[in-house]
Write a protein that binds this DNA or RNA. Structure first.
Lengths: 194, 194
DNA sequence: TTTGGAACATACCTACAAGTATGTATATAT
DNA sequence: ATATATACATACTTGTAGGTATGTTCCAAA
């Protein structure tokens, strides 16, 4: 059984995935848990703080975990990256494709409005980028990855193409569109092996 | 001198680029024009209709125009695509990078909330995708583009990587990040030439 | 010249979402 | 046994954004 604070975070996170942060009505969300505003404002000073907590306690581990195995990956890091992309692709299906990537959603909506959100979201992206970049560098040292590449450029590009694929698929409401875009990304990555 | 309706659309568009659609307060925006709610509701039945008008009358031509030259482009369509990407890159600078791509912003924010928005935004993406896809197909027929590629997969991928680059650069508040991601996209595209 | 509609302004209404103030039950420490 | 803090519930306040109702001015057609 989850404690009340975690339940508030989890249910609001789910609502934010569908409606966005601003359009999410916290009191309506928690009413589905059988609790009231009293509980909410007992655990969080305001709605924004709850948003921060969601980013740090739910989004951060959720997104970083998808890439963490790269740090100890044996074999060509390109294959490790491909494995992560396959894993992430599995989260996208016909039912949720229209909601897009929760991380990307929050970035688009909140980062220009609230510097606190931006910095916390940026930290997630930066962590993922560092993991990918270091894996590529190690691969270059070990002669597994094309040594003429700039690892950080590739890392940013991978994350861009991934988020962009979610975005294009979201508006098209089509998992097929997501798959087509991701297929090209993956085939491009294979060409980076030596 | 712009007519009142166009001014309302333009100023609200600029506000939406910064704040998003939901957070934009139409009456505050038009007060900077020296007009009041009376004018607004004379031209638009409600805020949503104004949003639709912005998508159709401002965003659609703005985004499609960046790609339209491909239809009559002489030479390798890959070069034509690269020219469009260069053009679009020029719109992004250190001052506005934190606001991201207005089209992508609206997609993320509104497409799951309002089917009218989604369909009108999807029309823009679909039009761009068709132009790129047809240019690639023509290039394949003329022996300028790798014939083993699926043109529509590449087209979706280009748009994904482009939107994703705006997104990653937005949260990083860094034109450099945008450039790094786009550089990789462009170098990838060059490998598609025969 | 009058009449109708276009193009606005002004004042008002109303729903509602965030936040506050206060109360209360329970557990825990002393 | 009493005091105190935790974990909530209930009721209230308040700002405000979207929308409405009602003018008013001006022009153009009949």
């Amino acid at each position: 059984m989850m404690d009340t604070r975690s339940q508030i975070l989890q249910k609001n996170f789910e609502a934010i995935c569908i409606n966005g942060f601003q359009a999410t009505r916290t009191d309506k969300v928690i009413s589905t848990l059988g609790i009231t505003k009293g509980a909410f404002y007992h655990y969080f000073p305001d709605k924004t703080s709850m948003g921060y907590a969601i980013v740090e306690e739910i989004l951060y581990p959720m997104y970083v975990n998808n890439w963490l195995h790269l740090k100890t990956y044996k074999g060509n890091p390109i294959d490790g990256i491909l494995a992560s992309l396959q894993l992430i692709s599995g989260y996208c299906n016909e039912e949720n494709v229209a909601f897009g990537c929760p991380l990307n959603n929050l970035v688009q909506e909140m980062s220009p409005l609230d510097e606190g959100f931006r910095l916390k979201l940026q930290k997630i992206i930066a962590t993922k980028k560092t993991i990918i970049s270091e894996a590529l560098l190690k691969g270059q040292e070990q002669g597994q990855v094309n040594p003429t590449l700039q690892a950080d450029e590739i890392a940013y590009f991978i994350l861009s193409a991934l988020e962009g694929s979610f975005s294009i698929a979201k508006v098209a409401k089509s998992k097929t569109v997501f798959d087509k875009s991701m297929k090209t990304l993956m085939e491009f990555l294979k060409t980076l092996k030596v």
